[in-house]
Simulated assay, not measured.
Amino acid sequence: MRTKDVSVTVIGSGDAFNSGGRRQTCFHVNSSTITFLVDCGVNTLQGLKSNGLSASAIDLIFISHLHGDHFGGLPFFLLEAAVTKRTRPLSIVAPVGCKKKVEKLASLLYPGTEILSKLDLHFHEYSSDQPFMVRGLEIIALPVIHKLETKPHGMKIKIDDKIISYSGDTEWTPVLVDLAKDSDLFICECNFYKKEIKGHLNYKTLSQHLTEFRCKRMLLTHLGDDMQDHIDQLEVACAADDLKISI
């Protein structure tokens, strides 16, 4: 039996510098059984509230890698959860070392509050190349090419009979083709139009590989000024803050 549609709201589609006034990376996904975020940039709480989405209803947060514009919103998200006395369990799926970094960041930003200890909080670390289950979701996390110290991963998330895949931040790698295969939605970073910066993808490179992708829909994200200036020249749809998609 076909399940109900899964809804995706783009909370943030920009880069670390909020280019074009866009929020940092975050995607809100809702199904009949679970609600989760993919990445949690610093503007995440503001973006959720602007879209009328409840932070307290979120069951799970995926973090692709340990750069601030992808996990820096966690201390604020968790602080609000603690202040509002959230009792609902919250799972965070992230690269190795995320828990310690979040603890240190929360302590630095809000000393003396002991945010994490007040929550029913569960951290899960990626097991690269092998499918694993968290909160009823099947996940495959694959290493991609970005700053090594951030432990970068792309991911494929199976929700009932739907698949959402996400590149995380990366330069071109054939892993992207594997991530996108059979996905209902593949969200792919494309920071630049033609500028070549190590660890990030540009559209000129991506366009040379478009025929290799086997996904129902592709959406480009993490858009810098260079990409935003060329949006009308692209063959692939781009994410925009507050965009809503059903898959």
Rank of each mutant, 00 (worst) to 15 (best):
K118V: 04
K162Y: 15
T170A: 11
I145L: 12
P131I: 07
K244I: 13
T113L: 15
V175E: 10
E103S: 10
T35D: 01
C190Y: 08
D15A: 09
G112K: 11
L48S: 08
I164A: 05
N18E: 15
V236D: 09
I159R: 12
E212Q: 15
H153T: 03
V175N: 04
R88W: 03
S32R: 12
A239E: 02
D120G: 02
L179S: 07
L108N: 09
T35Q: 10
S117P: 00
K181S: 12
A106S: 15
F76E: 14
F36Y: 14
G224H: 15
I164F: 06
I139A: 06
Q130Y: 07
C238I: 11
S117G: 09
L176H: 15
S31A: 03
R135P: 00
K156D: 01
V42Y: 02
K100Q: 13
G112S: 09
N51G: 15
H146R: 01
E189H: 14
I231C: 06
D182L: 06
T84N: 11
S13H: 10
E138W: 02
P152W: 05
S107Y: 02
D120A: 14
V6N: 04
I115W: 04
P152R: 03
R23H: 12
V102C: 04
I231W: 06
T9A: 06
K158L: 03
P75G: 04
V8Q: 07
P131R: 13
I157E: 05
E235D: 14
P95C: 06
D59V: 05
D120H: 14
L105C: 05
E189Q: 14
P174S: 12
S165V: 04
I140C: 02
L220S: 08
